[in-house]
Amino acid sequence: MTVFVAPDIVKTRHWHRLDDGRIQCDICPRFCKLHTGQRGLCFVRQNLDDEIVMTSYGRSSGFAIDPIEKKPLNHFLPGTPVLSFGTAGCNLACKFCQNWDISKSREMDRLMSQASPDAIARAALDRGCASVAYTYNDPVIFHEYAIDTAQACRDLGIKSVAVSAGYVCAEPRAEFYQWMDAANIDLKAFTERFYHQITGGHLEPVLETLKYIKHETSVWLELTTLIIPDENDSEAELEAMTQWVAENLGPDVPMHFSAFHPDWKMRDKPHTPAKSLLLARDIALKNGVRYAYVGNVHDKSASSTYCHNCGSLLIGRDWYDLDEWNLDNSACRFCGERCAGVFDQHPGDWGGKRRAVTTNRVT
Score class of each variant (00 low, 15 high):
204 E>P: 01
206 V>S: 08
203 L>Q: 14
195 Y>N: 12
180 M>D: 00
205 P>K: 11
195 Y>K: 08
181 D>P: 00
182 A>S: 03
208 E>K: 15
174 A>H: 04
169 C>M: 09
183 A>Y: 10
182 A>G: 02
198 I>C: 04
188 K>V: 03
179 W>G: 00
174 A>L: 00
194 F>H: 15
181 D>M: 09
191 T>D: 11
169 C>V: 00
195 Y>W: 04
197 Q>R: 13
174 A>I: 06
173 R>S: 07
206 V>Y: 08
186 D>R: 07
189 A>H: 09
195 Y>Q: 07
171 E>D: 15
189 A>E: 04
180 M>W: 03
192 E>F: 01
190 F>C: 04
186 D>G: 06
206 V>D: 05
191 T>E: 02
180 M>H: 01
181 D>V: 10
183 A>G: 05
171 E>K: 12
177 Y>A: 01
203 L>K: 14
178 Q>G: 06
194 F>S: 02
188 K>I: 06
185 I>V: 15
201 G>L: 04
197 Q>W: 06
200 G>C: 11
194 F>R: 02
208 E>V: 03
174 A>E: 15
184 N>H: 02
204 E>V: 07
177 Y>K: 04
184 N>A: 00
177 Y>E: 03
172 P>V: 13
175 E>S: 08
182 A>I: 05
211 K>R: 15
199 T>W: 01
201 G>Y: 05
183 A>Q: 00
202 H>D: 06
191 T>C: 09
183 A>F: 05
202 H>S: 13
199 T>Y: 03
189 A>W: 06
197 Q>F: 08
174 A>P: 01
206 V>F: 12
188 K>Y: 10
183 A>V: 09
175 E>Q: 12
200 G>W: 11
198 I>K: 07
187 L>G: 10
180 M>N: 02
207 L>F: 05
195 Y>P: 12
189 A>N: 03
204 E>Q: 15
173 R>N: 10
178 Q>E: 14
195 Y>G: 12
210 L>W: 12
189 A>L: 07
208 E>T: 11
173 R>Q: 14
197 Q>D: 14
191 T>I: 00
190 F>E: 08
187 L>S: 08
207 L>P: 02
203 L>N: 06
194 F>T: 09
187 L>H: 10
174 A>G: 12
178 Q>R: 14
184 N>G: 07
193 R>V: 12
190 F>W: 12
185 I>G: 03
209 T>Y: 10
170 A>K: 10
211 K>I: 05
208 E>W: 00
172 P>Y: 13
182 A>P: 01
176 F>G: 08
194 F>G: 01
211 K>Y: 05
203 L>H: 04
178 Q>L: 03
186 D>W: 04
195 Y>E: 09
178 Q>A: 12
171 E>M: 02
210 L>C: 08
170 A>D: 15
180 M>P: 02
202 H>F: 10
194 F>Q: 05
181 D>Q: 02
205 P>E: 05
177 Y>S: 01
194 F>V: 13
191 T>F: 06
199 T>A: 15
196 H>K: 15
193 R>G: 00
195 Y>M: 08
175 E>Y: 08
179 W>E: 07
188 K>R: 07
207 L>T: 09
211 K>E: 15
207 L>W: 06
207 L>H: 02
192 E>N: 10
208 E>A: 13
174 A>R: 14
202 H>R: 13
207 L>A: 02
190 F>H: 13
199 T>G: 02
